[in-house]
């Protein structure tokens, strides 16, 4: 230990002053460069031509259609991911079955696959030259270059979020409360809604929040399957790209400011939920010791 002054007992305070200054400095610089600067730039550019132009850009039919599509995709994807996540977490944390580890690996798959590849998978399956292409054409069902394709691609990249939050949480909390509920005569569903769900609610909300952020902000996978049809298959991120490529900078940054606002809101809620989650885990650990 390089402590020059003798007083503090906590480990952090025994670092020399220059070490502390350097570490804090690096952190501030990183946060400034990668978070504050981009956010400030987005806002500056969005309002570069004044409030009126800002609102005008957002009221354009293409922009409104993009916002509607993004909200629709999120509204479909988030509930489906949540249902899947809760079922998978219940199965993995409560049952022992063969292939459990394989299931866990599959759940982690979207994190290791590039989103562009994810989009490509769906083109290969549902596209005009894909496996199901002819069958879909016969029945006049459009998946690729239409809304269903966008929903599928978004589902692929978001489905691990809720499961990954819940599985370790449910394993940590343990199943004794559920056994107690069953012994008192509760059915499986009653146990789930009255005992399990309240115990994991903060972890669940946290997973839903992350899932929503990803669903609304996804670019790569959606870009491949979307077809970029103005007013029909452009989500907000795609609309931003299109506007920017057409030199409509105010329009692009105005839409981007919406996503930036979503990011800040997500961050605030995430911090709150993380704190709540920590409280719950601490309480359950204490209950296990006593």
């Amino acid at each position: 230990m390089t402590a020059v002054n003798s007083k503090p007992t906590s480990l952090t305070l025994t670092d020399a002053t220059w070490v502390r200054a350097t570490l804090v400095g690096i952190t501030v610089l990183t946060v400034g460069l990668f978070l504050v600067l981009p956010l400030a730039t987005v806002l500056l550019e969005a309002f570069a031509k004044g409030w009126a132009t800002y609102f005008d850009s957002l009221m354009q039919p293409d922009a409104l259609a993009a916002m509607r599509l993004t909200l629709l995709v999120a509204a479909i994807t988030v509930p489906l991911t949540t249902v899947f996540g809760v079922s998978a977490a219940w199965a993995i944390a409560r049952f022992d079955f063969r292939g459990k580890n394989i299931l866990l690996t599959f759940i982690d798959l979207p994190f290791s696959v590039s989103p562009v590849i994810a989009g490509l998978i769906y083109v290969l399956i549902f596209g005009a030259q894909g496996w199901l292409g002819p069958w879909l054409a016969q029945h006049d069902i459009k998946v690729i270059f239409a809304v269903p394709g966008i929903v599928l691609a978004t589902l692929f990249v978001t489905f691990p979020f809720v499961a990954r939050e819940l599985i370790p949480l449910m394993q940590e909390i343990g199943h004794e409360e559920e056994e107690a509920a069953l012994s008192l005569g509760a059915s499986g569903w009653q146990t789930f809604f009255k005992v399990t769900l309240p115990n994991v609610k903060w972890g669940l909300l946290y997973g839903v929040l992350l899932c929503n952020a990803r669903a609304m902000g996804e670019f790569g996978a959606v870009s491949v399957v979307s077809g970029h049809i103005r007013g029909l298959t452009n989500t907000l991120p795609l609309h931003i790209e299109v506007s920017y490529n057409e030199y409509d900078f105010v329009g692009a940054f105005a839409s981007a400011s919406l996503l930036a606002g979503l990011a800040v809101l997500t961050l605030l809620l995430k911090t709150f939920l993380e704190w709540k989650l920590k409280q719950d885990v601490k309480a359950s650990r204490q209950a296990a010791i006593e």
């Binding site: 409360e177 056994e179 107690a180 209950a287």
Partner: peptide, 9 residues
């Protein structure tokens, strides 16, 4: 149960 298993919420 040994660790009570009271419903914490």
């Amino acid at each position: 149960f040994q660790h009570y298993a009271l419903f914490r919420h």
